[in-house]
Design a protein around this nucleic acid. Structure first.
Lengths: 164, 164
DNA sequence: GTTGTAATGAGAATCATTCCCATATAGTGT
DNA sequence: ACACTATATGGGAATGATTCTCATTACAAC
């Protein structure tokens, strides 16, 4: 556990999926995967750049996009407009999110199997009624995080425009 | 829109909530509320401008923001980055969304009471574990809409940028 | 009507994200 | 190792949505 404590399978999967598109698993991409894998929550590009100081913005965007196309990463939309990114569920496991309406932070949560089943079923039924082909669902909770609960009363933060 | 078949109570509520913040329920704001109320799905600013041709962009953004602050409108984030807007649940009723991963369109759906109850419960449990104060949830389905299913394979549609 | 406050609209400014392109690097075959 | 070709990189310019600025206008209360 010197530098990176990321399961080897994650990197293998990433390399494999990129390879399928004739794309390489370069150092920059490996760094991105490592960053996302160790974060435990979806990160925005600015947050990724904070962790990888030498990484140019354009490379971050370009490679996150490449990883998304390869199915290694997925984009999460939270309370604000910032794109946030996390490893695809096949690599990180299925889970949901808890977003703070004040500061915009998003955390991972794991729902009960029962709820999960109910949601899957509901998804199928409702979507088929509309003629959609369902490819996934998103169940996100919105609230106020412990930190922001303590803060006096910042007016719902600059970021957190009209969340639920 | 002429005859405007929007429940009077919606406008009353809007006026009331704006009034509470010393803000007026002006013609522009009324037009926005009417547009959103009759759409039946969340609209992006470009879409709103399409319906209200004479409306300047800056007024649209400014007033949507004002309506959000007054609790009349809420922002919805779908598959792409476009902000989409709809009437607050207190005015339009609680519901969820079905988003097309291709073109980004978002439709309203009404889930079963059973699922709704399960989600509320799960929300409470999970959030309390994390010390959050839950204020709401969001259950969105992602899929491919009937129209996009027919299209060969446009790579995530041009819509992702402009209006619908 | 006068006065004060809020609203409007046109355009400038901001900010995240994407695009462009010249250079660097990995992978492959020799 | 050598050359060759495709992909990746990074710096900066371009794009596009959203926000801000400000002079002007409309409304409400006096």
């Amino acid at each position: 556990m010197a530098g990176v404590s990321v399961a080897a399978s994650v990197h293998e999967q990433a390399a494999l999926r990129l390879g399928g598109l004739d794309q390489r698993y370069t150092p920059v991409r490996r760094a991105l995967v490592t960053t996302l894998a160790t974060a435990g929550r979806p990160l925005s590009i600015p947050e990724i750049l904070e962790v990888n100081e030498a990484l140019p913005q354009s490379s971050a965007y370009r490679n996150v996009t490449a990883l998304i196309e390869a199915g290694v990463v997925r984009r999460v939309t939270g309370v604000d407009d910032h794109g946030r990114f996390e490893l695809a569920e096949e690599l990180a496991g299925h889970h949901h999110h808890l977003a703070c309406a004040r500061c915009g932070t998003v955390e991972d949560i794991v729902p009960s199997p029962r709820l999960e089943r109910a949601m899957d079923e509901a998804a199928r039924v409702v979507a088929e009624e509309q003629g959609y082909q369902v490819t996934g669902h998103q169940f996100d909770l919105v609230g106020t995080c412990p930190t922001c609960q303590l803060a006096p009363d910042a007016p719902t933060m600059p970021n957190a425009r009209g969340a639920l």
